[in-house]
Nucleic acid binder design. Structure first.
Length: 706
RNA sequence: GGCGAGGUAGCUCAGUUGGUUAGAGCACAGGAUUCAUAACCCUGAGGUCACGAGUUCAAAUCUCGUUCUCGCUACCA
């Protein structure tokens, strides 16, 4: 495998609607940063691009939630995320943003080219339209009852209550948030990317060319998608927030966020070129460029199927690899923003990096643990106790301690200077340490090239461990006691410390991609310039000149105390608990500032609904459906079959005999082949648990409800 | 329900094309040591490789079935 002429590395564009947590960091940004730092140390031509993804409907939604504008939201989170990355040592060559005019222009050009080449299709569909406002309604301007959880103010693209993503058609009783009127359906034209035309290409490219060198989960996920049948995907939508569709007669339409966001990698590269006076084109057009996307597993389809098709049509190079990571859990549970079960980058920075006893060493500490538990092959788990153990017994005790004892001994036994190396008394121990240094450099290098950062880091620690073992065998502090009788023994001390110091310098080089701040500090202690960190020096035994005076030792890392860990766990639980209470105490209708209550109806509207009390006489699971129960409900005048989406909340046996409220004059509807004749009313509590709405005492089935 | 990825020591993970007593690190136990951040070093204990069949001289590894976890997807009137 020859070395490519240049590399372009991307990390998933973080969505600018809120803080990003350590799961995001471990999934994409940290591995990408490690890889890039390694490439740069190798003096390869590598450009690392990223930026904020600032379009899409969730940003305006977040704006509504925070009572502000979409622009204010992205102006708040874009610099925050940029600073967070910087604080944790994630160094992009450019951190761009999709709201930048350069990006709009790039995305429009991209779209225009595809459109001009006939690579897009147009289709007319019916969409909701507000007659009084004379406008099509983007998903977020439509509210209605969530079909999933029954929340009455769900948006047309997502229910904020249960988190399910929706399409406006799924909403029950949709209402325009502009006028409060029920919207009408009207045809509108949209552009589509016909993925189905490219099945052959995708099969060849992914399954044949990369079936073996990409991660199994990535190939598997793609295969699943391709086999499932590729569909044309809408590229545009009716919305006022995003990149305008650059065609006449497309007023009020923007590019769909999934289409514009990945193009952000290209505009970011352009911005980098502008900043540095380089040419961006070879990075996206020259075949000798290696393009690598670092992402989380939720992004596989976009980066392996959709974006490559776009790139191919537009005449760009394709990604060489897409090392997608799995997810990182936290203390036994999935990380979740809505449940407040997470560790934001900002929180870690505040609690550790920016504390008096913290500093950049704590940024490296986090980088160390996150790399050590990187979810490279399966979901992994961030445990605060695990964090403490990893730092205290590996980083501090093995790595930090080796560096420290080497420097301390050198000052005590060698007058603070790098001692000479006497080849005439070299023994097998010395030789094997020399070998280990060279071998580790090679191993770390190979592992990083193969995106196996966890193992690569392990090898770095292993080298420090070898150093500790070597010193233990040589015992220079014992030898020093014999100097009075045997002055020649100084040679043994010299050799031991000479090698330990050269090993330390090597550790700095090898650790640099993972622990950049620490590597820098080590350079300072060894009084060498940062240039020594170039990878070509890895494995060298001549990094420090004999007779060179070094600085007084300083500790590289501090231990993490039990109290700190306890405090973090407490904080995590408190935050989740608070969130839970908030949710429980907040009436559903006031969680949103817009249209908390549905539009007023007259009594006649209500009277149309025929509600009756019924008794469940039989219940069973619907086959091939996770959420459906088939119920037989005795309504007094007849027993009906009703299908209800409550299978995840109730065991069929446990609800037989229960009384429920039923809408009996609802139009029948087939679900999974079974006709449902009515609807069971349910209430949902703050925890998402469903409860039947029923009379307090058992009454006759068929009794009316009003 | 369909599809994809996983299930290996208490914890985090390795195990190349099936081949001798299944490997690391952490944690744990014992020992040694004091230069070093109660650090290091040595030794040890600890596994029915999710479960059940099958193929084979030989299975953690291949095949089938079952089960659990995660993701994508369908189902929610």
């Amino acid at each position: 495998m020859s070395t490519p002429k240049r590399y372009l590395i991307t990390a998933a564009l973080p969505y600018a609607n809120g803080q990003k947590h350590i799961g995001h960091l471990a999934g994409a940004y940290l591995p990408a940063d490690i890889y890039v730092r390694y490439l740069k140390a190798q003096k390869r031509d590598a450009v690392f691009v990223c930026g904020s993804d600032e379009h899409g409907t969730a940003i305006p939604i977040q704006a509504t939630k925070e009572g502000t504008t979409a622009q204010a939201i992205i102006d708040k989170y874009h610099p925050l995320m940029e600073q967070n990355f910087k604080d944790l040592g994630i160094v992009f060559d450019v951190y761009h943003r999709t709201s930048d005019p350069l990006h709009h222009q790039t995305a429009q050009e991209f779209f225009t080219k595809l459109e001009a080449n006939g690579d897009l299709e147009t289709k007319e569909t019916e969409q909701y339209f507000d007659e009084s406002a004379q406008t099509f309604l983007a998903d977020r301007y439509i509210k209605g009852t969530c079909p999933s959880c029954g929340y009455d103010s769900a948006y047309g693209d997502q229910c904020e209550k249960c988190g399910k993503s929706l399409s406006p058609e799924e909403l029950i009783n949709p209402v325009s948030t502009l006028s409060g009127n029920a919207p009408i359906k009207k045809t509108t034209k949209h552009w589509y990317l016909p993925l189905n035309r490219h099945e052959e290409f995708l099969r060849n490219w992914i399954l044949e060319e990369h079936g073996n060198d990409w991660r199994p989960s990535v190939v598997g996920q793609c295969k699943s998608w391709i086999d499932g049948g590729l569909q044309p995907r809408a590229v545009t939508r009716d919305l006022d927030w995003g990149v305008k569709v650059p065609l006449a007669g497309a007023d009020g339409k923007v590019l769909y966020v999934w289409f514009d966001a990945p193009i952000g990698y290209i505009s970011a590269t352009k911005q980098w070129a502008l900043n540095t006076g380089n040419d961006w084109k070879p990075y996206w057009e020259d075949k000798d460029t290696k393009l690598v996307h670092f992402i989380g597993k939720d992004n596989i389809v976009f980066h392996c199927i959709i974006f490559p098709v776009m790139l191919k049509l537009h005449g760009n190079i394709l990604p060489t690899d897409v090392p997608a990571n799995e997810f990182m859990n936290l203390e036994g549970d999935k990380m979740s923003t809505s449940r407040n079960w997470k560790l934001d980058m900002q929180d870690y920075i505040t609690d550790f990096v920016n504390k008096e006893n913290g500093g950049q060493q704590m940024a490296d500490a986090l980088r160390y643990y996150l790399t050590q538990i990187a979810p490279e092959t399966k979901d992994s788990e961030f445990m605060w106790k695990g964090f403490q153990d990893a730092i205290n017994s590996e980083l501090v005790s093995v790595f930090g301690n080796f560096v420290n004892r080497s420097l301390v001994l050198m000052h005590k036994l060698c007058n603070g200077k790098v001692p000479p190396y006497h080849t005439d008394i070299e023994d097998s121990e010395d030789a094997s340490v020399k070998e280990a240094i060279a071998a580790t450099a090679k191993k770390v290098s190979d592992l990083i090239e193969g995106y196996r950062f966890r193992e690569a880091l392990f090898e770095v620690i292993a080298l420090a461990r070898i150093g500790n073992g070597y010193m233990q065998k040589k015992e220079p502090w014992i030898v020093a006691k014999q100097l009075a009788e045997n002055p020649a023994a100084q040679k043994q001390i010299d050799n031991c410390l000479h090698l330990c110091l050269q090993l330390t310098a090597n550790l700095a080089i090898l650790a640099q991609p993972f622990l950049p701040f620490t590597a820098k500090k080590m350079c300072h202690l060894l009084k060498v310039v940062d240039k020594i960190l170039d990878w070509e020096n890895a494995g060298s035994l001549k990094l420090l000149s004999v007779g060179y005076t070094l600085r007084a030792p300083e500790l590289l890392f501090r231990k993490i105390e039990d109290e700190e860990i306890a405090a973090q766990i407490q904080k995590l639980n408190d935050a989740a608990q608070t969130k839970k209470m908030e949710t429980a105490n907040t009436p559903i209708t006031s969680t949103s500032t817009i249209a908390p209550v549905k539009p007023e109806i007259v009594f006649d509207d209500f009277a149309k609904i025929d509600l009756r009390v019924g008794t469940i006489v039989a219940a069973s699971k619907v086959e091939k459906a996770d959420k459906l129960l088939q119920l037989s409900v005795d309504l007094g005048f007849e027993t009906r079959t009703i299908v209800s989406g409550i299978a995840q909340h109730f065991e069929p046996e446990s609800i037989v005999g229960k009384q429920v409220t039923v809408v009996v004059n609802l139009a029948p509807r087939k679900m999974r082949g079974i006709e449902s004749n009515g609807m069971i009313l349910m209430a949902e509590d703050a925890n998402g648990k469903l409860h039947f709405i029923n009379p307090s005492d058992n009454i006759n089935p068929g009794s009316g409800v009003s």
